[in-house]
Write a protein that binds this DNA or RNA. Structure first.
Lengths: 347, 347
DNA sequence: GGCACGATTGTTAGCGCTCACACACGGGTG
DNA sequence: CACCCGTGTGTGAGCGCTAACAATCGTGCC
């Protein structure tokens, strides 16, 4: 490791060149895998690199190549299972493609928060952004932002004019609804997610479409905010209907996500309404806990990891000029049938 | 927006200088908030910046300042609630301090995977790393890595010789155990997490310490792997003890995390063992679902967000030379008492 | 035997910014 | 009235790297 005694600055390409007895350009060529380098030279350079523990300075590279190989992610609530899993897929794919990913959580609401987030990423020179903006207004704000780099929208709804990736929410909702009808239920009730969320709206739309197609009247949907508590409240209301025996009978409920379904199950249980014997319940997402709910929850699995990976690939295709336009990648949902909709009690 | 017609390259500081009729140095001064600039000049520069939509090139800055203001995070499984929440806190704090954060998930096991992760971050010039490495071996590998930048360990156990942040796991375990004993239970059973995880070991240690202090024999701990399924299996075993009436009576169980507790609850329910009347159950973490478990789960709340924020601050203190050495920041746990350990059934 | 051409290596110029320094100016001080 | 010092601004020199071009050395072919 003996070398000229600078105080303790990391070695530069020139240091390596000197050590290997070649020019700095040759070092650069070896490091970037340029073809026309004699094997012997290459070996010398590699040895010198190892000896000195040299690493290329990314800032200097970025300065001259105008490529930072850095991507940004904008998300709302990354502590939930879905977004967190999507992020994991995102990071993995980006790393495989040789990019760095940095995430920013949206703070404050819509317009300004979004602009701040984009600015933050922008000031670090990201080459593109994946935005997890499930709320309609945020998606629209995003589309209007006109960022100086490609933006891919994930679960951001349809009409944004941006390249997008999402689960086929409507299809998933149809699958659950059809599953419940096939089990002999006369109709299917629905606990919807909050207004203004594209996922929420697509799931409701899918549910409604199936009922319409079969000429079944859709009961008035209840509404929650994705939280278990809101599901609990909706569940209490449903239990009321069951016990009072009024209106179209409540025998099957499609809840727009698993967390709310947990709340619904609790409310039904507290009211003495047995699941699935008296009321069948299904959710959406397939969070890891769903299999252990009382009873195990029938739900629609979203392959969040795959959504993340697809969106990174789409983004990179745009950055590297292999894609243009606003294509929409749809990921297939999968119905997971468990005890909460089976004829037999599991618990 | 009229300006000299380069093809379409983003404006440089020189462009702004020309536009504002000053030198590039003055622009730099304005942008970095240098004091000795006449207000009028400052205004001209700001106006020119706005007019041109100018942004400083981060690569050029980093090249000369030798500061990338980028941090790395290494984590294992970021899809779980705990790590995901910690990450969120981390990102937030870093953004407030003007740093960019990039995360990398560990792939493969211990040594090599860790080295690859560090290399990846390193090649992007991170100035420091926060490592969420709850497994003992990973933590040790990390300590031995001798990275060229500060590393803060989160929940990585004690003896690593690295600056560290963690929840006071042992204290949390003591709180639950004491809570259960105070409710009149003769002893407390334990479903532990997997071997080799510092959190698992600290929780077991806290539980054992309380029993020892009171001269109570510790029942043999069962063991899971954090998953609901493993909790379910442990729960079946416990249910067996309860029903057979053998050995020291099972009336209270401290489960090392909430997800396993969910499995335990299900197993007990299936075996007809009522909670909390017959057996009280407590968990650890306070995941959002815990409040809606059947019954609502008594647990120890970890303030994951705060853990994330503290670790970023600690890391930045090291980077900026305000701290040295291997101090260990402990975050206080909080006991959350719910129906699963109350004398009265909630459900 | 000379020349074209590909393989291999070196030389030169920046990329866009900050730092160190120089310079100009004005008002107080001895 | 010369001098000093603080304020405000400009000039020049790189940071460490890649891209473009230039130079050198063979080798095969006519």
């Amino acid at each position: 490791m003996a070398r000229s005694a600078e105080v303790s600055r990391p070695p530069t390409m020139a240091d390596v060149a000197r050590e290997a007895g070649v020019s700095h350009q040759t070092v650069s060529r070896v490091l970037s895998g340029h073809p026309h380098v004699r094997p012997a030279t290459r070996a010398q350079v590699t040895a010198a690199v190892d000896r000195l523990g040299y690493r290329r300075n990314p800032a200097a590279r970025a300065l001259v190549t105008r490529r930072t190989r850095t991507l940004g992610v904008i998300a709302v609530n990354t502590t939930l299972y879905g977004p967190a899993s999507t992020m994991a897929g995102l990071h993995e794919a980006a790393r495989d493609e040789g990019y760095l990913v940095s995430a920013v959580t949206l703070r404050g609401d819509g317009r300004q928060g979004l602009k701040d987030a984009v600015d933050h990423l922008s000031s670090w020179g990201v080459e593109g952004v994946v935005a997890l903006t499930p709320q309609r207004t945020t998606g629209q704000a995003l589309a209007r932002l006109d960022a100086p780099f490609p933006v891919v929208s994930v679960e951001g709804g349809d009409q944004l004019g941006l390249p997008a990736v999402s689960l086929d929410q409507e299809r998933g909702a149809r699958m659950v609804t059809e599953h419940l009808l096939a089990a002999g239920h006369a109709t299917v009730w629905h606990v919807a997610g909050p207004d203004g969320w594209s996922e929420s709206e697509a799931r409701t739309a899918g549910w409604r479409a199936v009922l319409r197609e079969r000429g079944i009247a859709a009961p008035p949907p209840l509404q929650g905010d994705w939280s278990p508590l809101s599901g609990y409240r909706a569940g209490q209301e449903l239990a009321g209907h069951v016990l009072s025996g009024q209106g179209p009978g409540v025998t099957a409920v499609f809840v727009a996500n698993d967390q709310m379904a947990l709340g619904v199950l609790r409310a039904l249980r507290e009211a003495g309404v047995r699941t699935p014997e008296r009321v069948a319940v299904a959710g959406f997402d397939d969070i890891p806990e769903a299999e252990f709910f009382p009873p195990p929850l029938t739900t629609v699995r979203q392959d969040f990891g795959s959504i993340g990976r697809r969106s990174i690939r789409l983004l990179i295709d745009h950055i590297e000029g292999r894609a243009r336009g606003a294509e929409h990648v749809l990921v297939e949902p999968q119905l997971i049938v468990r005890g909460s909709t089976r004829g037999v009690a599991e618990v």
